[in-house]
Structures are given as C-alpha cells and as structure tokens.
Design a binder for these strands. Sequence first.
RNA 1: GAGACCAUAGCUCAGCUGGAUAGAGCAUCAGUUUGCGGAACUGAGGGUCGGAGGUUCGAAUCCUCUUGGUCUCGCCA
Length: 601
Amino acid sequence: MIDKIKNEWKDCVARALGTYLGATDFPEPNMGVPPKPEMGDIAFPMFPYARIKGMNPARIAADVKEILSKAEHPAGTLSTAGAYLNVKIDSSSLFSDLVRKIGMEGSSYGCNSSLRGKKVMLEFSCPNTNKPLHLGHMRNDSLGESVAAILKANGAEVMKVNLINNRGVHICKSMLAYKEFSNGETPADTGEKGDHFVGRYYVRFANWSKEYEGRIVALEKEGRNDEAEKLRADSPDARAQRMLKAWEDGDEEVLALWRTMNKWTLDGLEQSYRDMGISFDRYYYESDTYKFGKSEVLKGLEEGVFFREKDGSVQIDLSDIGLDRKVLLRKDGTTIYITQDLGTAIRRHEDWPFDSMIYVVASEQAYHFKVLFHILKKLGYTWADGLHHLSYGMVNLPEGKMKSREGTVVDADDLLAELSALAKEEIVSKGREALVGDVDETSRKIALAALNYYLLQVSPVRDMIFDPKKSISFSGNTGPYLEYMGARISSILKKAEEDGIASASDVDGSLLCNEDEEHLILLLSSYPSLVAEAAAGFDPSVITSFLYDVAKTFSHYYHDNQILKAGSPELVSARLSLCRAVLQVLKNGFALVGIPFLESM
RNA sequence: GAGACCAUAGCUCAGCUGGAUAGAGCAUCAGUUUGCGGAACUGAGGGUCGGAGGUUCGAAUCCUCUUGGUCUCGCCA
C-alpha cells in the first residue's frame, strides 16, 4: 500500500522532471527517507539533474516543487530542503484503508504470493546422535524456523527437513563407553533426558581415550615401544574403529545397541525441539542414505564424471572451478561425508521435487557445499541450480570459542531453563502469577522470545558473541520487550471491551495526526514489503528491526497519549483501531521470528 | 601458501539498490508515576565507520591495496 503511494509519487516527480528538463532521457528519481520525520516521508535528491541542467540543485528542487504542486499528485505536502524535494505523505488518508485491510486479512496481513507454486526444501538442525543440542544448534534452529515461516509468508510451499547424523565413528564412541562403564543403566534408571545420558558417555569416552593416550606416550618415552604398541591396539579409539567396522558389517549386537542408544538420544532431542518450538516435516537419516550415495558415485564413475585413482579411491577433478581434487570414495570403498550428502540430495529430490533447496549450515562448511553443488551439476542434475547454502557465522562466548573439551559449551536445555527461571522470577516479583495463568508456560515463552530475538537480530553472515550472563536481558531491545508491548496493547483492548467501548466500523483517520500516529501508520503500511525483503535475503533480522521500530514507536506514543480517555469518543475509537492494527502486525511479525505472543505476562 | 568471510560508541549490534548532522540497546550519569501494565518513557556524555588510495556532485556503503581476526583448503563429520 505504502509502496504503491511511493511509486505514484516517484512517477509524478519523474513527469515533473521531464517537463522541467524538457527531455525524456534522464536518470529516474532516487527515493530516500529524510533524516528526520518532520521533514517528510520521501526524499528526492536533485543532485543528478544539476549537471544536466547546469544549475544549482537546490534551485531545481524548488522549481520541480512548483511544477509538481500544480500537477495532479497523491495526497500529501511538498517541501524542499536544500537539494532535496521532500514529500510528506498524508497518512490519515491511508489509515482507513490500512485498518480495513489489516482487519480483513488478519494474520495473513503482510503475506504475498510471489513464491506461490514454488516448492522449497529447507534443511536445518542436523544433530549428531551422541550428545545434546548446544547454543550453536539454537542459532541454526532459530534461523531455520524463521526462514521457513518467512518463505511461507511469501507463498512458497516449504518442507522442513532434518538430517540425523546417526552413523560414524563418533557415534560408536558413546556406544563403546556405554558398553564399558554403564552396567546396563538406562535413562529411565537415572532420570536423565536421553540425549544428556548418551552425551555423558560421549564425554566419558573422551576422558578414557585421553587417559590411554597418556599411558601410551609415557611408555614410548621409556622406550617400551612394544608395550605401547600393544596398548594402542587395545585403545578406546582403536576399539571404536573396530566397532564401526562391525556396525557396517551388520553385527547384530552392535546394531541393537546402536538402535537403543539412538532412540534415547532422539527422544531427548525431540523434547528439546518441542520446548524450543522447532518442528520438522520430514526426517532423513545418514544411515539410510550413505549407501545410496555410494551407488550414485559409482554410477558417475561409469559415466566418466569421476575417475578411479591408482590406489582404488574414486575422485573428482575440480580444477575447472579452481579447486583441487576431492575424494568421493575411500580406497577401501567406504563412504565419506560428501558421498552421503550427494545421496541425500538426490534422494530428496526424488521424494519431493523441489524448485529450490536451502541448507542452513555454519559458514565453516562453505567449501563443502560449493563442491557438493558443483558435483551435482556435473552429474547432470539440472535442479542443482536451485541449491543454496544459507551460511551463518559462529556463536562465540566472551572468552572465545565454545570448546567441548574445556566444558565451555552452552547446553541448549540448560540455557532455556535458566532463562525461564529468570522470567519466572520477574513474574513472581510483580505478583502476576494469577493474571498470567500458567506461570511455567509463560516463563518458557518469554525465554524463547529472548533467545530467538537475540539470535535473529544479528545478520546471519556475522559471527556473534553470546554472553550467557549479560547478553540476554529482558529490557531494552529484546524479545521480551516486544512481547511486553503486545501484552500491554492486549490489555488496553481488553479494558476497552470491559468498559463497553464499541469498536466503530468507520473511523476518522484525520483525527490521528500526531507524529507518532503518522509514523505508526506508515510503518504498518510498509510491513508487507519487508516480508518480501526478508525472503529475498533469507534474513529474519529485517523483521526483528521492524518489530522493534513498531514497539518503540508505540511505546513512546502511548506514554504520551491516552487511548481510552482520549478527548472524544471518535478519537478513542480511532486510537483503538490503531491499537488493533499495531497488535495484529506485531503478532504477524512475531510469528516470523519465533516470538510467542502473550496476552498477559 | 591459496581461498572465503568479518572489522561501525566502553560492550552487544543496526545502518535497504551510494544521499542531509552515522543510529539503537546495555553500561554510566540526570530525570519522569494523582493515567490504559515502570519488563516502560525522557535527556546527557560517548565515533578518525580498522588504515590508505580511487570512482562520484556525494562513500560506513562501490573498486583497489593494506592491517588485524575467524574459517576452510582431511580418504573427519
């Protein structure tokens, strides 16, 4: 709506310029935003025409303003400031249309159909089945969920998929430690969440292996190399390798343990996903796709896309894209990471022929995806042009990188619990338990708002620093602040209803003429174009900044202006309509960035 | 060594296809409640946009070089 008006203005300015310059061939006017709201809503700089006309740009601005003011143009007022021709849009004339549109469209206000008919597959999360989720996964999951919602809002058909990394030597490590040290205990026995239970054995393995390594090195120092060799052959790492071989050979005992422990972990991860509001439409498992990947590589070998090295490994020459060679099958014929990913991609396109597929994966894997996409193209899959790596930076701590060995990894469940506890404290300290209803559920939703907003407000490409103690506050530019605005507007509307203030069907927009009201109306009008912009760049931070802008403006507005006790019934009615519109847009935006809406908090 | 990405206030981050005096939050300091939720609002101080060139009427933004940081270049995943 706002875009339409802006473009109308742009056309008008272009026509006026045409008349003024007496030409048809000149650069089309640039549209900007004046630095201060009172200067107007659209700015047209006249610099480019100064040279053409050989005149002072400020003079041009004044002359064009003259021409324009006599011509037909949308409602609004013109002014000049130096070389700028500024337009103040008559927002009150927008208001009734805006209110009607938002009222009619409700939760779909802001959606468009630019991606209608497009099938987009979105892969994210992709956990290993040997440990619980950590902060890094949370950024991944937040991004995945948000981008999925944003693409849907643009009309795409979205399939969210998760690829479970449930095979490989790292999985065997937790299994081996369990076999060695558990005495058969189960998560049910210890009361632990399954992923934490298994993760504990993964850590146990690491310590066990380290201890062995120390003994081996000590023996070697003493020159007792035979004994060292013997110890090494029996080391945890060697045994894990043998277990992997047994797993691949189909050893029933190993497979049984694998199934059991995988289930424990996945049950635990499912719980975390539920708590964090993450869901998937389909799961893929590496254990299912790695063999398929191998057969695809062998097919490519026959077709001459790949070649077999003298040592027996299968490789591809990537010199055409300025890279080296890449191994696709080991000399013993076993598969590697990329073999499996090739198989998974092909299988997925067979399952659900997508137009595009987005991998939400950390930037450290940029090389992997470059190679993967290239190979798929070389194999002749035309759909490979629709593959996209949504790369995001790392989440670091103030003291540096998270390191599992140093125990500095921030556990996702712990973090959520900690934030929920803080939120609960806040609710209790304000004595709002009864007003809130389910205190624990509300606390969790506040924690989620804090987390998702914090993780999404940073542009995906950037590394970010996360200070668990300080970074997540509930005041200022935060998720809970946005939720709070939603709750307060809800509260006003509720009170209006209780007081029997009827909502008028036709409101007089011309009553809403203070600066904040005008700003809010323009903001709400611009929301649909931002939904499109967020989709184009796969960037939820477009939405988070918008929401903060709306909340902040509203905050300021209702601090200074009474709504229910405004001067006249007509003004009350108009302001209530504005409140409803703001609330609806906040809710719609919340849904795109994982902020739960709360009527009361 | 080669390549990719990042650098903006004390800290955490915005800044759209180049446009007017570079913006928020936190922290610091000073204020605001006889009113619909104070998880709020207002104000102040705080900047050589890593550095140097270039393009342009105009550069935090584009180009080149350079410094610093991170990541990748495994028959690990």
